[in-house]
Computed example of a mutant assay.
Amino acid sequence: MEGNEVRKALQDNHINLAWLAEEWGITPQALSARLNVKMFKRGYLIEITQILGKDIFGIGIKTEQQPVLNISANSTASLNAGNYPVIEYVSVPYFSGCVGIHYLRYDAEPRYMFGDTIFLQEATNVMPGQIYLFFTGSDWFIRRALLTDKSGTYNLVALNSYYPDYEVKKKDILQMYKIVGTISREQT
């Protein structure tokens, strides 16, 4: 693909070139120089595609972005971008199909620290010993789930020993999400 074709694709998709240069970590002059070349490097196309989160050049790169939701208010709504404001998007292939939240509690430390971005997938069944984010009618929290009896009561064990464990009947769990992974941000 030629540089002028790349420039046209960017303009057709209303991509601000100054913004793109800043996101790419180069100067606007460096971007202009790259767009003036006869043969635009495929690696540059891939980098731009990753920045944009979509393939406007038809190079066959699939990108998926995961929303990070603001769930600061206690709610019973399903975790998706239609129910909660999106704070930001990330693109981590391992978290494909997940939603993220900033976990602003201490009950899951030291495994999940205050401020970590935790990526979740909705779960329908509890696997004993796994860690989940649970929503009940009165609260939401991260706990390790242990089945206590055949009637469907779970012992939800806090990861931080300073916080209480809960016994919760399956019918009282409104939603549960398996924790797929986390991104920790350096605290300053």
Rank of each mutant, 00 (worst) to 15 (best):
M1R: 01
M1I: 06
E2Y: 10
G3Q: 06
N4A: 01
V6F: 00
R7P: 03
R7E: 04
A9F: 02
L10I: 02
Q11F: 10
Q11R: 12
D12V: 02
D12G: 01
H14V: 08
H14C: 05
N16M: 02
L17Q: 11
A18V: 12
L20W: 02
L20T: 05
E23D: 06
E23G: 04
G25E: 12
I26Q: 09
T27G: 12
T27S: 15
P28I: 06
A30V: 13
L31W: 01
S32P: 01
A33W: 01
A33M: 09
L35T: 00
L35H: 01
N36P: 00
N36T: 03
K38G: 06
K38V: 00
M39H: 04
F40T: 02
G43M: 06
G43P: 01
Y44Q: 08
L45E: 03
I46K: 07
I46P: 02
T49G: 03
Q50A: 07
Q50C: 12
I51Q: 08
L52T: 03
G53D: 09
K54S: 09
D55V: 02
I56N: 01
I56Q: 03
F57Y: 00
G60Q: 05
G60R: 09
G60L: 02
T63H: 04
Q66T: 15
Q66Y: 09
Q66P: 11
P67V: 02
P67M: 02
V68R: 02
S72E: 13
S72N: 14
A73W: 03
N74Q: 14
S75A: 15
T76M: 08
A77R: 15
A77N: 15
S78I: 13
L79H: 13
A81L: 13
I87P: 03
E88Q: 13
Y89W: 10
Y94N: 10
F95S: 05
F95T: 05
S96D: 09
G97Q: 13
C98Y: 11
V99E: 06
V99T: 11
I101Q: 05
Y103F: 15
Y103G: 10
R105W: 08
Y106H: 11
Y106L: 12
E109W: 08
E109D: 10
P110Q: 05
R111E: 15
M113S: 13
F114W: 14
D116K: 11
D116I: 14
T117K: 09
F119R: 07
L120K: 08
L120C: 11
E122A: 15
M127N: 07
M127S: 10
G129A: 02
Y132P: 04
Y132M: 10
L133Q: 05
T136Q: 06
D139I: 01
F141I: 06
I142H: 03
I142P: 00
R144S: 04
A145F: 07
A145S: 11
L147G: 01
K150G: 00
N155M: 11
N155D: 07
L156Y: 03
V157P: 00
V157K: 07
A158M: 04
L159C: 09
S161W: 00
Y162W: 07
P164L: 06
D165I: 04
E167Q: 14
K170Q: 15
K171M: 10
K171T: 13
M176Y: 03
M176H: 13
K178S: 13
V180T: 11
T182H: 09
I183W: 12
I183C: 14
R185F: 10
R185H: 12
R185D: 04
E186L: 14
Q187R: 07
